[in-house]
Amino acid sequence: MSAVDTTPAANRPAALTVNHLSVLFGRGTSALKAVDDVSFTLGHGEAFGLIGESGCGKSTVLRALAGLNSEYGGTISFQDREVPHKRDKAFFRRVQMVFQDPYSSLHPRKMVQNVLAEPLKIHGFDRPQERIDEILTAVGLGPSFRYRFPHELSGGQRQRVAIARALIIEPELLLLDEPTSALDVSVQAEILNLLKQLRRDRDLTYLMVSHDLAVVTHLCERVAMMSEGRILEEMSAGDVRAGRAHEPYTREFLEASVGYRPIA
């Protein structure tokens, strides 16, 4: 696991810097602050995890970063350059996202081949056919899956297609929105190992959101605990596994995640 534990090279610019990010839903007095003054930095090649309970704002952070929600306060910088609120094509080329539910993230009437060909067309890549074969092999499906419709695929296979779609335009930063939570446990492990291997092979930076500690610590070196729209503290994956936390809420969260434990 040495490749995963490498620290970001000091001379390269930070892949992603988030400064005082805040997102408001609603207006006036009834407005809800879903994300409140969130700041963090992602080194190049790093894997960073955001954890927290449902509704703590972790997915909202991700959607604001991806450009799905352009109404946010604070700044987001990609490779030391601030990105505009309305993202441009160049940004989408380099930052891609994998969604939570593979059953709703693939167009029901599009064949795998068309799903993968579309981003290539948008960004004007050459050799589309070779690239499609290549990426299908890389995500462990193989070219025989080209002419399948999503309803002919299992959940794990769908998520592999979704990962292939995100990676086919060779992004540098991959945003992962609980990519395994809709899958059963054995398939979860397969997808996580695939993500781990792809990161090594393609020199990717990951930002992952999850409520599952085992999933996050398997993939990420650094983890930030979120609650009620704020980041409480940042920890290393080792700290999380060992249950070393400063904040009481984090300690409680970590303990609750261990689940059932027989009385010694």
Partner: peptide, 26 residues
């Protein structure tokens, strides 16, 4: 509002492409 439209938006598709290529077929 579906994820597959969000996904294609994140790939930089224009509104015209999304409407004609993704919404109309549905």
């Amino acid at each position: 509002k579906s994820d597959y439209i969000a996904a294609v938006r994140l790939q930089g598709a224009s509104p015209l492409r999304i409407i004609l290529g993704h919404v109309v077929p549905m």
